[in-house]
């Protein structure tokens, strides 16, 4: 590789820019001062204690967990159906249907949230965690489909044929061959949908009827300066959590490619 000192330092600077607010999280989360500013005042775990004792935060976290687990499960299952159908079969209406499924990727989220809200209100459906789940699944399914499509695509069709040829039925082939080979893709899809759902704000805010949900709760708390340090503590925890999940997802994806005997050709998306 040719050396490019200028480009290299630019890239490092760019990374610093990307990470700059995140780096502040652990710094001030452990800083022994109500005032978020330099110079630092000393080390403390108070903010983490405050975070842990916050009753509303606990409810919000529990709700977010319920939502994210449901959303990740539902959209991964819907993604499996759609990805398998689009990779393996030709059928009428395939392009418009796949287009509709992927549409939320190119539609402002606010519009999806409002359209759904208008319909729910006119049908007198009470807003709840359930309506949040319904809405978020629309947002995360395209990601699940994208990840799973590449997982199904890297599957050699002759593996399925070989299994059928050796006496297995369509269903046992799915169970013995396809499922184990796309399992890393399924795990990656689940983790990524989980992460997106956990962070999602607009739908949680508008379709949740004020139920405490983590992202909405965080958004509200940052307006109170006194609450900021404990929010920074929470942010630190969440960032660590995201990085661990991402690491697992990336590991799964690579293992999936290695298993199917393919070559690594890039990261997420």
């Amino acid at each position: 590789m040719k050396k490019a000192p200028f480009l290299r330092s630019y890239t490092l600077f760019y990374l610093l820019f990307l990470y700059s607010p995140i780096i502040l999280l652990p710094i001030f989360a452990f800083n022994d001062s109500k005032v978020v500013a330099f110079p630092l005042a000393g080390f403390t775990l108070d903010w983490f204690r405050e975070m842990l004792s916050d009753q509303n935060l606990r409810i919000a976290a529990k709700n977010s967990l319920i939502i994210a687990l449901s959303v990740a499960s539902v959209s991964t299952i819907l993604g499996i159906f759609a990805a398998r159908a689009s990779v393996r079969y030709r059928f009428p209406g395939k392009a418009p249907l796949m287009g509709l499924i992927m549409l939320p990727l190119v539609l402002p989220e606010m519009i999806i949230a409002m359209a759904l809200l208008v319909v729910l209100l006119s049908l007198n459906v009470p807003l709840s965690l359930f309506t949040v789940i319904i809405g978020q699944v629309l947002i995360t399914t395209p990601f699940a489909v994208a990840i799973l499509t590449s997982a199904f695509q890297s599957l050699d069709k002759s593996l399925e044929e070989a299994s059928m040829d050796l006496g297995e039925t369509a269903w046992s082939t799915f169970r013995l061959i396809i499922l184990p080979l796309v399992m890393p893709g399924i795990m990656a899809s689940f983790l990524i949908c989980f992460t997106i759902s956990f962070d999602e704000f607009i739908i949680s805010n508008f379709l949740g009827s004020g139920q405490p949900i983590l992202s909405v709760y965080i958004f509200g708390q940052f307006r109170f300066p006194a609450k900021v340090p404990s929010m920074l503590a929470l942010g630190t925890v969440l960032v660590c959590f995201s990085i661990i999940l991402l690491g697992i997802a990336e590991y799964m994806r690579r293992r999936g490619i290695a298993k199917a005997g393919g070559k690594d050709s890039g990261g997420f998306l």
């Binding site: 002759s158 593996l159 044929e161 070989a162 299994s163 080979l181």
Partner: peptide, 12 residues
Amino acid sequence: NMVFQSYAIFPH
């Protein structure tokens, strides 16, 4: 029974 061009050896 078939021997496939790609051999279709189950990689897992």
